[in-house]
Design a protein around this nucleic acid. Structure first.
Lengths: 165, 165
DNA sequence: TATTGTTATACTCTATAACTATA
DNA sequence: TATAGTTATAGAGTATAACAATA
């Protein structure tokens, strides 16, 4: 069943709004605190978890490959914003901990970030809109979290790899 | 004024839902037609414009730097999905035109894409939700389009460049 | 055996500035 | 002078597979 016309309009508006908003956020984070979008999300996630998480937990929370996270954690560590140390409860795991400098960096970026979110997003919404949007996005997020990673993709035609080696 | 608690919940749900959805879309486009998210958007935009646009128009419609678009247009041209030719109305401009192969590629990817949108997004929404979301996102998009590119960013503290040269 | 994390590698993408050509 | 587009270049980010260590 194809998308209905009203769904199509909603879909395109959503895509473009998200594009524009993400672009604005990246500018702000870079300008105010020299952070990428992902680095900001990683630090925020650590704060939300009382300051520390394992690499796997952190990767899962931002929808990221583990090798990609190793790279980003390296960048954050180099910048002094996090530390990495062995997890006493599991010798395989690495605990990532946000530093005071990391918290300070978030303090430095957050006002501008909140300002962008206020101006570009919430200024356009009534309280009822906020409630409706929150309810809708929570539902979508929970469903997406529950989805099997990729099994459901029908893979209609293209074989995507020519050199299986 | 900081974000209100209800805004905060809405905000985090929105961010995470978008992360997850974008990830799923990238998988699907790559698997079904070996296209990146941006390449798909560029081709869709061309189709929506009767098949051709100038480089600048195309860049603007996807929030993209022009040099970045030159790269992507080169990729699409190499793959035979678009052609580039001088614009008869302005000798400075380049007209990008989608080819039959480009349209065929979209035909190849679109069913899977619609399917993902249906399953991950719209299956969670009532008709009223679709209307509400469309209305909200249209409002936000229009406001973002009208925003001055970056002038408003307060730029609180960090100087962001140390080698102005 | 399965899981955690890192490394090496190769590739894709993006941004900047310098440049050409036309308006 | 301003605009359209390309190029060169350099850097950031990402994914894959192979690997070591622990559960």
């Amino acid at each position: 069943m194809p998308l209905q016309p009203r769904q199509l309009g909603t879909y395109f508006a959503l895509i473009e709004a998200v594009n524009l908003f993400q672009h604005a956020v990246e500018q702000q984070l870079r300008a105010d605190g020299d952070l990428s979008d992902i680095q900001f999300q990683l630090l925020m996630r650590l704060i939300g978890a009382n300051g520390q998480l394992t690499m796997t937990e952190l990767a899962d929370s931002v929808v990221y490959s583990r090798s990609g996270l190793t790279y980003q954690a390296g960048q954050l560590e180099k910048a002094g914003l996090v530390t990495r140390a062995p997890d006493p409860r599991d010798d395989r795991a690495t605990l990532v901990t946000i530093t005071d400098a990391g918290r300070a960096r978030i303090d430095q970026v957050l006002p501008g970030h909140v300002d962008v979110a206020q101006r570009l997003l919430f200024a356009q919404l009534t309280d009822d809109d906020v409630d409706a949007l929150g309810e809708i996005m929570t539902r979508i997020r929970d469903h997406l979290r529950a989805e099997p990673p990729r099994s459901a993709a029908p893979r209609k035609s293209a074989p995507r790899k020519r050199n299986p080696e």
